[in-house]
Nucleic acid binder design. Structure first.
Length: 659
RNA sequence: GGGGUCAUAGCUCAGUUGGAUAGAGCAACGGAUUUCUAAUCCGUAGGUCGUAGGUUCGAAUCCUACUGGCCCUGCCA
């Protein structure tokens, strides 16, 4: 149910006497919120204080007038005024009980759903298929999947699209690699692994060559920075109190330090590479590899038979690989329209931009210049090739025609925010003004050292091995024989595998979703698999406990099966706290979709699981005083389980009946 | 140089349209168990919300400046 809306509706007639205008009335109603401190109130209306200017009376007097005018009916057991003029509400136990009853009878745990369903296109995951997927891809995939599920559950029309990078430079790299470095036997045996190896071989050579090529510039810059620092230091000693100079000195010192460190690390990498003689030989044999790779890419894009043939041969293998990962993550898409799908539409995009005089030639490229940005959006390179900005424009135009969405969400990392600002500005100029485009950005996954999460040698961490490790650790903890024996549970091997799998994958997903989407977070496998505190396992465990009680109830010892027909009673503090949290489910989902924050849902579920634990501790279910109470609590337990399961499902996390 | 973003307990983090005494988890300490699954519950301790101003009934939250970190900044995606 939409609890907040129900409460706010009661306030509307009273507040409208001072706020005849709909907008200001709504703004005032929005100040009625769940109380942060449950000991003060369940809900609080912070409406009287801002009204003092409009009404011309002290807040306390206004609050009194509000309370006198309110017709809360059965909803509240207590309405009071506190502090500077807060109107505090205490929901009545009978209301909570009835509302839980209704939620229990409903097939969607009481969900009313969106009044005006909208159409969303959600673009997420979108990896480059020829490269191995790494930890950086997990956020987009997991966040996008969760947002899609929540919106869909609320009744919106959601179209998910995995915009695969299946047409870019990385294919030039593996095509070049395949032509020159392939191991046929290895390719026969495991094509994806071999392609991955070829990608890394080519990447390493390009990396080395670019380091060598830039070494001179780097040395010069380092020298210049050091000289600048030197001269500023001299000036500083002449004028020690010049603040501007001090600032300059500081930034010069930083710059000198940075360039020196960069030079040092470049030299080190080069020295390391040079100790590998076969590698150096390869580099000599393939000079200027980057431009050779670009040529292969360009040939592919221009329909070269051989390259197109290789691309067609590689792509199914690459797709199979990532589909394997999606299967493990239990993530599905409605569409998988990659970059290659849009290739033929790109010239028309440029044509339209030129025709509408949005794009101009500049320095040999075709660019769209936008107010507020120094650099233009480049849509066609000097060499005639298109860029991802061109593809993104074509994609947006295609989706507009095909799906007619109300909103398009791009779940992409925050470093691309400027790209999306430009993209959206151009789309607006192209007349796509009735669709809301939104970059749902997210922060970087950091290592323990506070730097982007990489292996010690600087490589990205493979997604597959990360999932394997999470599952292995989940196994160790969950299927620990001592623990299982301690409460006499016998699990088959198959059941153990299933549990370890769902707990391990759940741990990774939950760790990602529970952090605020926009902030960076430190990746800590120990912690996320630790199964204590704010983790998926704690919630999954709570769910398993609800199932355990229900299993026992209908088992031989108690033989109770008639609780669905009984009525829910709310009396104990732990019962009412649990009931109220259950009823806040829909409000939580709506709040979560307001700015696409799955962490709102994780917080909610964690709180619900904690409240259930308290309830479990303080309110015996099967050993309650009366048969009626036993049945009431069984019903509440079942309802809690349903919400926990549904909530986890919206996060893409599965549950188990026993763990 | 320009722009973006972040700074909250020892650690990892919540705190979204400004609301009452700033909250969790971990780590530390103390209690509860013949268990409806102790992977639990209850409690103690821990803070000048980066600094300085401003806006107002009220600021961790909004504005300005400063300090520090990360990111982006014309032909990769």
């Amino acid at each position: 149910m939409q609890l907040l809306h129900t409460i706010r509706t009661k306030f509307a007639p009273v507040l409208s006497q001072w706020l005849p205008d709909q907008n200001s009335l709504q703004a005032s109603l929005d100040r009625i919120v769940a109380s942060r401190d449950a000991s003060l109130a369940d809900y609080q209306a912070n409406v009287a204080m801002p009204l003092q200017k409009i009404v011309g009376k002290p807040p306390l007097e206004i609050a009194q007038a509000i309370v006198q005018g309110l017709q809360m009916g059965d909803l509240c057991s207590e309405v009071s005024i506190a502090g500077a003029g807060y109107v505090n509400l205490r929901l009545s136990n009978s209301f909570l009980a009835n509302a839980c009853e209704a939620a229990y009878q409903s097939d969607k745990v009481g969900l009313q759903g969106a009044q005006e369903p909208k159409t969303f296109v959600i673009d997420y995951s979108s990896p480059n298929v020829a490269k191995p997927m790494h930890v950086g891809h997990i956020r987009s995939t997991v966040i996008g999947d969760s947002i899609s599920k929540i919106l869909r559950f609320l009744g919106h029309h959601v179209i998910t699209d995995n915009h695969l990078g299946d047409w870019g430079t990385q294919f030039g790299m593996i095509i070049y690699g395949y032509k020159h470095f392939r191991d046929d036997a290895a390719f026969q045996k495991a094509p994806v692994a071999e392609l991955g190896r070829l990608y890394r071989v080519v990447q390493r050579i390009i990396g080395y060559q670019s380091l060598v090529a830039n070494l001179e510039t780097l040395e010069r810059n380092t020298k210049l920075a050091a000289e600048k620092l030197q001269s500023l230091t001299e000036k500083q000693s002449a004028a020690p109190n010049d603040k501007k100079l001090q600032k300059e000195l500081k930034s010069a010192a930083n710059a000198a330090k940075e360039t020196a460190a960069e030079l040092e690390s470049a030299k080190l990498s080069i020295a390391n590479a040079q100790s590998d003689s076969s590698f150096i030989e390869r580099c000599r044999a393939h000079p200027q590899l980057e431009s050779r790779v670009l040529k292969e890419t360009s040939k592919l894009h221009h329909g070269d038979k051989e390259n197109l043939g290789l691309w067609e041969a590689f792509l199914p293998h690459c797709k199979e690989e990532i589909h394997g990962i999606y299967e493990r993550l239990n993530v599905q898409f409605d569409h998988e329209l990659g970059e290659s799908f849009y290739h033929d539409m790109l010239p028309a995009v440029i044509e339209e931009l030129m025709l509408k005089e949005l794009a101009t030639h500049s320095e040999g490229a075709i660019c769209v210049f936008l107010d507020g940005f120094d650099a233009p959006m480049i849509v066609q390179k000097q060499d005639g090739a298109f860029l991802y900005s061109t593809t993104d424009l074509a994609t947006a135009l295609f989706r507009e025609r095909e799906f007619e969405p109300d909103a398009c969400l791009y779940v992409v990392d925050h470093r691309q925010s400027e790209h999306f600002q430009k993209l959206f500005a151009v789309l607006a100029k192209l007349g796509l003004t009735h669709t809301t485009f939104k970059h749902v950005s997210f922060g970087t996954v950091m290592g323990q050292d506070g730097k982007p999460f990489k292996t010690r040698s600087g490589e990205n961490i493979g997604l597959e091995s990360m999932l394997d490790e999470a599952i292995a650790r989940a196994w160790e903890v969950v299927c620990n024989p001592n623990r299982i024996k301690s409460f006499g549970m016998e699990l088959t091997e198959e059941e153990k595998r299933d549990i370890a799998n769902k707990v391990g994958i759940g741990a990774i997903k939950y760790a990602d979703l529970s952090h605020n989407r926009t902030s960076d977070y430190v990746f800590d496998m120990d912690k996320m698999v630790q199964l204590e505190g704010n983790t998926a396992a704690y919630i999954q465990y709570s769910y398993a406990r609800t199932r355990s009680i229900l299993r026992r109830a209908s088992g031989e010892e108690f033989q109770i099966t008639d609780w669905p027909a009984a009525s829910i009673q709310i009396a104990q503090p732990a019962e009412r706290a649990l009931a109220m949290q259950i009823l806040r489910f829909e409000d939580t989902l709506m709040q979560s979709t307001h700015d696409y924050l799955p962490s709102v849902v994780t917080d909610y579920l964690y709180e619900l699981a904690k409240l259930f634990s308290s309830f479990f501790d303080q309110c015996p279910v099967l050993k309650a005083e009366t048969p009626e109470l036993i049945r009431s609590r069984l019903k509440l337990t079942e309802l809690t389980g349903r919400v926990l399961k549904q909530g986890l499902e919206l996060l893409g996390i599965e549950t188990v009946e026993r763990m």
